[in-house]
């Protein structure tokens, strides 16, 4: 036991969820070049959410960002800090407070799930007895029963994903990096994986960075979203505030199609997003209600073919970010 060092203070200093803690991620001018190409281009952001989604189309740099945070790729410029610990000066500590679930297969096929997760726990610094105890806890948490004694190579894709999650969790990391965790899962297994991620987030001691190109997954579990495009930050949204805000959106379509009706609504104080010939998404200010739209349409002798209350979905936010000129040309 003398060889062991106590991490209690360390945990209390950087535990996620308390107001005094440093941000989950601080990225300053981070650039990463691989094979002569710039994959991340002067990325700058501060992330304070508890479960943070990392969105972007294929090739946007999501996986590269995750791997750079793990120290697998050296930054060409800039730096990043995880829970106040700098990658440049304290990469070893950063690794020890992170749990990483990679996108691809990552297992030793000849080992049982218990042995594999236990080894990962011990490599993360758990004493052998604690590693075994927590291995069983982690495998129970991800819903693995007696199959945990089978060799990982014999598992289905869904079970392998659960083992990957268990190995990332076993040492009780303060930040969990999940790279496409629902890849290859059927709808039931996907739902289960998202439930687990929410459970971990709710517990409050572990921050989560969930990299995915599936908007539904991110919207279901995350409270903050970073959107990458061509290696740059194309948008950052606090989903929790967005969901809690009293903003009222209305999708409407006029008959006959009238592009001028948008300007009429703007004069009333609405924010208008023109979505086609006579189709609009309108954000109503607090002092207006839907009846004002009916009245304005009647004044211009227009019929309303469709009027539907809605909210700004992540898909809308994402598409706006993709249309913007944030990425590389």
């Amino acid at each position: 036991m003398q060889a062991l060092t106590n991490s209690t203070n360390f945990q209390s200093q950087v535990g996620v969820g308390s107001r005094s803690t440093p941000p989950l991620l601080e990225i300053q001018g981070l650039s990463v070049r691989l094979g002569g190409r710039t994959i991340l281009d002067r990325l700058d952001t501060t992330v304070t959410g508890r479960i943070v989604g990392l969105l972007g189309p294929n090739g946007a740099g999501k996986t590269t960002l995750v791997r750079t945070l793990m120290g697998f790729f050296p930054p060409a410029a800039g730096n990043a800090s995880v829970l106040g610990r700098s990658l440049a000066t304290d990469s070893r500590t950063v690794c020890s407070i992170i749990g990483y679930m990679p996108e691809d297969d990552a297992y030793i096929s000849g080992m049982s799930a218990v042995r594999f997760v236990r080894m990962m726990g011990e490599l993360s610094g758990l004493p052998p007895d604690a590693a075994l105890e927590r291995t069983h806890d982690a495998l129970t948490f991800v819903g693995m029963g007696e199959s945990r004694y089978r060799k990982v190579g014999s598992f289905s894709t869904g079970m392998k994903q659960m083992v990957k999650l268990a190995q990332a969790l076993v040492h009780g990391p303060q930040l969990l990096l999940l790279d496409e965790p629902t890849n290859g899962l059927d709808p039931v297994a996907r739902h289960r994986m998202l439930d687990l991620i929410m459970d971990i987030g709710r517990e409050g001691q572990t921050g989560i960075l969930l990299s995915s190109h599936l908007l539904g997954d991110v919207e279901a579990v995350c409270d903050e979203v970073m959107i990458l495009k061509d290696g740059r930050l194309a948008g950052q949204v606090d989903l929790a505030s967005e969901h809690q805000s009293a903003r009222v959106f209305v999708d409407l379509e006029t008959l006959p199609p009238s592009p001028q009706f948008g300007r009429t609504l703007e004069r009333l104080g609405c924010s208008v997003d023109v979505r086609g010939d006579g189709r609009f998404r309108v954000e109503l200010p607090a002092h207006l209600d839907v009846r004002s739209i009916f009245a304005a349409a009647a004044d211009e002798d227009l019929a309303l073919r469709r009027l539907e209350r809605t909210r700004d979905s992540l898909q809308d936010i994402f598409l706006r970010a993709m249309e913007g000129d944030h990425g590389r040309s």
Partner: peptide, 25 residues
């Protein structure tokens, strides 16, 4: 076992010796 999640706040082994875990396994 309680099917819940909790962080680890116990002692950890020194990083300089962790490679021996690979050897032992």
């Amino acid at each position: 076992r309680d099917r819940g999640w909790r962080a680890w706040d116990g002692p950890v082994t020194p990083t300089s010796r962790r490679f021996l875990v690979l050897t032992r396994f």
